[in-house]
């Protein structure tokens, strides 16, 4: 680096001031102008985060929301050169610093993860999309999914209810988000633990439904495999209609 310590220090102090607002004494400043930089930088961060999390912004008490954004802005060194990915850093920051517990907003982590998943999926790079036929057998042949999806486990059903209601319904929930190939729109599907397990196994381990059904007795006691098989076939057919299943071969 060719910069002198003086020059580096001036740049570093300005950048630090923009983030934490603690006054600095820099050589040659025009009085009362430095605050413009902090205002401009903060507005970029604030607007970005508000736009990424419209539900959280709406439902969190204003003073808590401001605390999260201010803390994030002043403490967290933003890493991504693409500002649209900044909300992911915000989610990680809120989780790592236990704000949900501190403010007893139990649904907060789920809500931020859910809202970010929608944004990430909507914007993310296209994945190879291997169309195939539906000539195979649902139970015994390989099922191919739309590759652009996120499977999200949740403690609170914030994908079904407003946060104020979801917070009273703690449990084990799963939501599938996938991007429609043609329109680019995001679809949401509420899943049972079985269908979540099934999607995970098909996508990660390339198993057939029949192979996955072998695990059912370990997951559920008193389960009727025949009934589960019938329901699973109906589920897969519904996912063909929704264009999440794109081939059975």
């Amino acid at each position: 680096m060719n910069l002198s310590l003086d020059t580096y220090t001036a740049q570093s102090q300005l950048a630090k001031y923009c983030r934490d607002g603690i006054a600095v004494d820099l050589l040659g400043l025009t009085p009362n102008r430095l605050s413009q930089y902090r205002r401009l930088v903060f507005n970029i961060i604030k607007d970005n985060i508000e736009n990424a999390f419209p539900i959280a912004y709406k439902y969190l008490p204003a003073e808590i929301w401001e605390e999260l954004v201010y803390d994030f802005f002043s403490i967290h060194p933003c890493q991504n050169y693409q500002v649209w990915k900044l909300p992911k850093e915000f989610v990680d920051f809120v989780i790592d610093n236990n704000y949900a517990k501190k403010h007893e907003i139990h649904y907060l982590t789920d809500l931020l993860n859910f809202e970010w998943a929608e944004m990430e999926l909507y914007n993310m790079a296209d994945k190879p999309y291997n169309y195939g036929s539906f000539e195979g057998d649902i139970i015994n042949d390989k099922i191919k999914f739309n590759p652009e999806f996120i499977l999200l486990p949740l403690e609170f059903p914030i994908h079904i209810y407003p946060p104020t209601i979801a917070t009273e319904k703690k449990g084990n929930y799963f939501v599938l988000l996938f991007r429609e190939k043609e329109s680019g729109k995001i679809q949401f599907v509420d899943l049972s633990v079985w269908y979540s397990f099934l999607i995970e196994q098909v996508s990660q381990n390339d198993l057939t439904i029949n192979q996955i059904l072998n695990y059912a007795p370990q997951l559920f006691s008193n389960i009727s495999i025949d009934e589960l098989k019938t329901n699973t076939i109906l589920f897969i057919k519904s996912m063909i209609t929704k264009k999440f299943v794109i081939a059975i071969e």
Partner: peptide
């Protein structure tokens, strides 16, 4: 600066 993006022109 100092490993933190500020997303504006300083």
């Amino acid at each position: 600066c100092d490993n933190a993006h500020l997303y504006d022109l300083l």
